[in-house]
Nucleic acid binder design. Sequence first.
DNA 1: GGGCGAGCATGAATCGATTCATCAGTTGGG
DNA 2: CCCAACTGATGAATCGATTCATGCTCGCCC
Lengths: 332, 332
Amino acid sequence: MTAQRASVKDVALLAGVSVGTVSNVLNRPASVTEKTRTKVEQAMAELNFHRNASARQLRAGVSRTVGVIVMDVGNPYYTELARGIEDRLANDDHTLILCSSDEDPHREAQFLRLLAEQGVRGVLVTPIASTMQRLGELRRLGIPSVLMDSLSSQHTSVGVDHVSGGRQAITHLIAQGHRRILYLAGPTDLQQTRHRLRGAVEAVQAAGLDPADVLQVVNLPYVTANEGQRGLIEALDGPGPQPTAVFAMNDVVALGAMRELRVRGLSIPGDMAVVGYDDLYFAAELMTPLSSVRQPMRQLGWAAADLLLTDHPHTMFEPELIVRASSDLRRT
Amino acid sequence: MTAQRASVKDVALLAGVSVGTVSNVLNRPASVTEKTRTKVEQAMAELNFHRNASARQLRAGVSRTVGVIVMDVGNPYYTELARGIEDRLANDDHTLILCSSDEDPHREAQFLRLLAEQGVRGVLVTPIASTMQRLGELRRLGIPSVLMDSLSSQHTSVGVDHVSGGRQAITHLIAQGHRRILYLAGPTDLQQTRHRLRGAVEAVQAAGLDPADVLQVVNLPYVTANEGQRGLIEALDGPGPQPTAVFAMNDVVALGAMRELRVRGLSIPGDMAVVGYDDLYFAAELMTPLSSVRQPMRQLGWAAADLLLTDHPHTMFEPELIVRASSDLRRT
DNA sequence: GGGCGAGCATGAATCGATTCATCAGTTGGG
DNA sequence: CCCAACTGATGAATCGATTCATGCTCGCCC
């Protein structure tokens, strides 16, 4: 029933030993006699002792928390990533401070300042445009960082091969006979957008076709359902040949596109095939199950945390196309 | 270009003042001359000074981080909650340590120990069966806690009125003419399950009907799409009168149920109306837009954090039924 | 029995920010 | 011209865990 927190001193007093011994029980149990150890452990239990992480970290100079900044915690895609990180950290008794930048440089800067003050062991970030410079400042403070879901030769990073993802999606659509494909892309300053386009171009060329004929790109400022719908309208109502397939930046964008297709009474995949990205958990549950490129987010997070804690270098993962009815006539 | 972290001592040295003065600049700027203040601030900028949160907390005895334990970070419903918490904490320069219990008592215990060691300012929890006792231990360490999404007279808590949510859903379905309603519920040891049932019963009674005739309950061990589908199969293939409407524990369960309805070629809402819970962001985007009870998760999180930081007592929120095509013939 | 080394326990010093009693310097009034 | 009053700066002490040079004890061997 002690109202206050017990310290090593209290434990030492109760056990009748010195504070150094208590610390030894905690950190070098082998160097303490069986007898004293049990005595100390009893005292700790009796006082409900929890070591003070602040004091520990102040002395040791190294923290047991890791900062994570993702673009949007609301997106299941990123929480899956966070989950992978957490799993890895738990193995080493570390915790995770999770922040959501909302793609807002100001928010990101504020979080990085807080993390620096916390003296975190390291920072894991899904980068936005302004990120790199600020990470340099952290580095100068001795705080390492890892980029996630984005590759950089300047910086330790883990990522998924978006070129491969784009290639797989478009190869599949071409194999299904499509010769005019709409890419509902994100902003061009996102590496993901560019890499997937490159993969798409490669797939078209590999089939002996001309990318300029086959691919039509619409860049959306935000990757939301409404934008996806708007982008599709823009493409369908515009001049030029009509696409017969859509490759969407993610499943939410695909959702918006499919909504517009229904509005127009177009069948999926008969009139228009659709392939999404991320394979969110509801993709298979839609009226027309959605083909989607699955990314190993949990492994990615695991790898990012592992890279920080142990310096094991594994950096690039392969995505995998999951084919469902939305792009495969035989399945409908 | 100093490789190491600068401390107040370094700043004091460079600015030619004492450490006490530096601390005053940081914490009581009014009590320092304009001239010395700018001198110190320049030194801080030059050294890229960040105050060490560990030392600060060790001395002050109070932390600027808050622990949050939710049942599943993978569920958008909980991340929205976390987002609300984060928004409130950011106002007071606090950060959030987010943990996912996965409904596993062992994981939860481990996280609570870590949070105790961190000396967090407080803990916000979506409780599972084993939670309450452990929170008592924290309390004895002087760490306050707030229950979220669950009400308790024993404990400070914020919650949504699940009785009201259940009542709204069933009142709506009865108004649509349904007289045999299947409640695809969660485990009975979840407060949410029980409260929504109570609301459902009240709605039936308010309509002058007998709950035993109208309501059929299937308890699912897990609230997943597959379980939702299985629960519906169990109900449809079982003896007794067939339901004409389904009230699902959440939107994911509703998704599974709708999948089975499609398999059987039953129309929604013609043959079977469906109402979900949580109003997840894809609910409106499904082929048959899903009616769902919306919960103000972000506000709930905000309120929980506010309760911790300021002791403003606001505890209960109202959910709101969003009617869409899945339960309303006129909208199809 | 004396000497020696191994095995344990000790406690002062340390990390960095904060606090507060104390001191130095300035001003104004008598 | 002196003292009181006040403003602003000072630096030693503090928080709790860890470390390491030091000291103590015991057992063993010559």
